[in-house]
Nucleic acid binder design. Structure first.
Length: 597
RNA sequence: GGUCCCGUAGUUCAACGGAUAGAAUAGUAGUUUCCUAAACUAUAGAUAUGGGUUCGAUUCCCGUCGGGAUCACCA
């Protein structure tokens, strides 16, 4: 039984013995003691006053005294303003450390074949432009989430739905056809996704020029847009694509391949991957069939122009278009098809969509539609919605060129890490390759931690200057703490110091050591909490606390210099476990830790 | 207009309804004969606003003000 449970049930027992009232042990309010108070665990006594019918001080003292008697682990207590603080014995802490020190993946639960299967969709790029900062947040959240869910003992399938068809792709294709002059990633040296993105921008520029000319000749903006030849050509291309026109199709394939090559590089640099990728070009027709089936069974209705609609006004939502008059599909159609295919492919218990919060409405509708179409999992789908990433000067706008490109950002972070490391004179004696690997690890650590430490629900500000700061509450700070621990452990090994199988439980511990142990023993709770609320930020905040606490310990207390062997062993074991937990926590965030930096 | 989200130090972020609202950064002042100074120590600074519920509210409810998202035959 966990210590928290023991304390809670002992408190419940004390209320029964002392005041003759039966209470549930779960109702006991128990938390970790604030750092500025003396104690390890704190019981809030206010809710118990109605049983004791005494004032908070007296009630706290009576229960405290009972706990000391009843719990062998409890050593001392104090009562301050209705808060009962319990101190556990040093031997309890040392024994806990002993139990944890050799355990592989402490705090993680292993999945079995019977564990639920969760599918997590993230990334979901369009194939007409390269990835930017917004995608980075999405990818990092999705990837970290899948690790957190896995650590909570579930089976996870990471999936991606690539929006590889539609008018936006045709725009790039058309622009390349008109003005591309046969450029390819190979002959231009431009990364494929960027090259295709260039032509997407080119289309937009030419389109603007054309409509501006039309407006100048006396048309309104709407008329000009309706008359645009360029747009008409793009639409014509989309129709040809749907009809599988061989020329359009092979152009589409060629350009998409360029993009995928580019994406692969970006994904690799970010350190994310997928177990199964779906392509909209393959799922949209399944969606169409589903919509038509819904039409047949009377769920949806057809309008005069033969477009198909779902009327959701009874559910408090609006009418929603599902198929256009010309029979082509829209976003919703595709998502219905994709969902159906996924549930055919896997026996999914939980479906999580990592998609920005601007699509809350869309997923509400999708959930309803799937439910109406008879999929029992429809109404339980989870839209993990996260906030936008903004820059200090405001929102990113692709038209104004204020978008932060993912590849540029990563490259810049690596440069900064390299410069900083060289300036500090770190990594001397490393080969160039090894050093580069560390720079990369630090750069990505900084970027990932910077983004993941923020509560996903909230909009966040991305200040490039702050993101490359490696001091304070940052990824490199935590990585540094890890490297420092490894260095200490190496020193100990060099001196032939071994950590015994069984630590001496009579060792006197300092407050710092107990604070560290308290954090360590709380790790499993943090992992489960993060899984419950789907938040990497919970993990990030925890590791920061742990690393900070360790650094204080490190400065205050000698480890390998400690002459008393029993004490030294405890401290070495403690350091080792902190290192292990840092590594595991960072793994949950998708961040690597270097052995030296 | 309807629906939803958000408002905490100069700035970026924390705080299961619980104690004196924590950090980081920027500022100031310190710590290297000693396990990595990407560290540590000290110092100063904040809950938009008015009500309500509660022994207790940053947290829950209502109003006001401010910011954002969404309600497309765009994805």
């Amino acid at each position: 039984m966990k210590i928290e449970e023991k304390i809670k049930s002992a408190v419940a027992e004390s209320v029964s013995k002392l005041y003759g009232e039966e209470i549930k042990s779960e109702s006991v309010q128990l938390g970790l003691t604030r750092k500025d108070q003396k104690g390890d665990f704190t019981i809030v006594v206010f809710p118990l006053l109605r049983f004791s019918k005494k004032n908070p001080e007296v009630t706290g003292k009576e229960i405290g005294a009972y706990l000391i008697e009843a719990l062998p682990e409890a050593a001392e207590f104090n009562v301050i303003k209705g808060f009962l603080n319990i101190l556990l014995s040093h031997s309890y802490w040392i024994n806990s450390l002993d139990e944890v020190k050799g355990v592989e993946e402490f705090g993680f639960e292993k999945a079995t074949d019977d564990s639920p299967l969760t599918m997590i969709e993230y990334s979901s790029p369009n194939t007409n432009k390269p990835l930017h900062l917004g995608h980075i947040r999405n990818n990092l959240l999705g990837y970290s989430l899948s690790r957190i869910v896995e650590a909570n003992g579930e089976n996870v399938v990471k999936t991606n739905i690539v929006n590889d068809r539609g008018i936006h792709i045709c725009k790039s294709m058309l622009a390349w056809q008109k003005w591309g002059e046969g450029k390819t990633p190979e002959n231009s040296g431009r990364k494929g996704d960027h090259l295709v993105g260039d032509f997407y921008v080119k289309f937009d520029q030419e389109y603007k020029k054309e409509t501006a000319e039309l407006v100048a000749s006396g048309l309104t903006k709407e008329e000009a847009e309706a008359q645009s030849e360029l747009m008409e050509e793009a639409r014509e291309m989309l129709r040809k694509w749907e009809a599988k026109d061989s020329e359009v199709f092979s152009l589409w394939k060629m350009m998409n391949d360029w993009v995928y090559k580019g994406f692969d590089e970006s994904y690799k640099a970010l350190g994310v991957d997928f177990d199964k990728i779906y392509y909209e070009s393959e799922t949209f027709s399944v969606g169409k069939e589903e919509v038509l089936r819904g039409l047949d069974i009377g769920l949806f209705s057809r309008k005069e122009d033969s477009s198909v609609w779902a009327d959701l006004s009874k559910d408090g939502l609006d009418e929603k278009l599902l198929l256009r008059g010309d029979g082509t599909s829209v976003y919703m159609t595709q998502d219905i098809g994709t969902a159906k295919m996924r549930f055919n492919d896997y026996s999914i218990d939980k479906m999580v969509y990592v998609v920005g919060n601007e699509q809350i409405y869309h997923f509400k509708v999708l959930s309803l539609l799937l439910d109406k179409l008879g999929y029992k999992w429809g109404k339980d789908l989870i839209h993990f919605s996260y906030g936008m990433v903004e820059l200090p000067e405001g929102k990113m706008k692709s038209r104004e060129g204020t978008v932060v490109d993912a590849d540029d950002l990563i490259a810049e972070m690596i440069n900064t890490a390299r410069d900083m490391s060289k300036e500090l004179g770190k990594l001397e004696g490393y080969s160039v390759e090894d050093a580069e690997r560390v720079y990369y690890t630090i750069a990505l650590g900084a970027l990932k931690y910077f983004i993941l430490k923020v509560d996903p629900k909230k909009n966040m500000t991305f200040d490039p200057r702050e993101s490359i700061d490696f001091n304070g509450n940052t990824g490199p700070f935590i990585q540094y703490s890890y490297a420092r621990i490894q260095s200490v452990l190496r020193k100990a090994t060099d001196k032939g110091m071994l950590i015994p199988e069984k630590l001496d439980e009579n060792v006197e511990l300092t407050t710092k050591e107990i604070q560290l142990l308290s954090l360590i023993m709380n790790f499993p709770n943090i992992v489960s909490e993060a899984g419950k609320v789907y938040s990497p930020a919970v993990i990030a905040n925890y590791i920061y606390d742990l690393a900070k606490e360790f650094n204080q310990f490190y400065h205050e207390i000698p480890i390998v210099f400690e002459e008393n062997e029993a004490k030294r062993s405890v401290r070495l074991a403690l350091s080792g476990v902190v290192g292990d937990i840092i590594k595991q926590s960072m793994w949950l965030l998708g961040i690597d830790v270097p052995e030296r930096m």
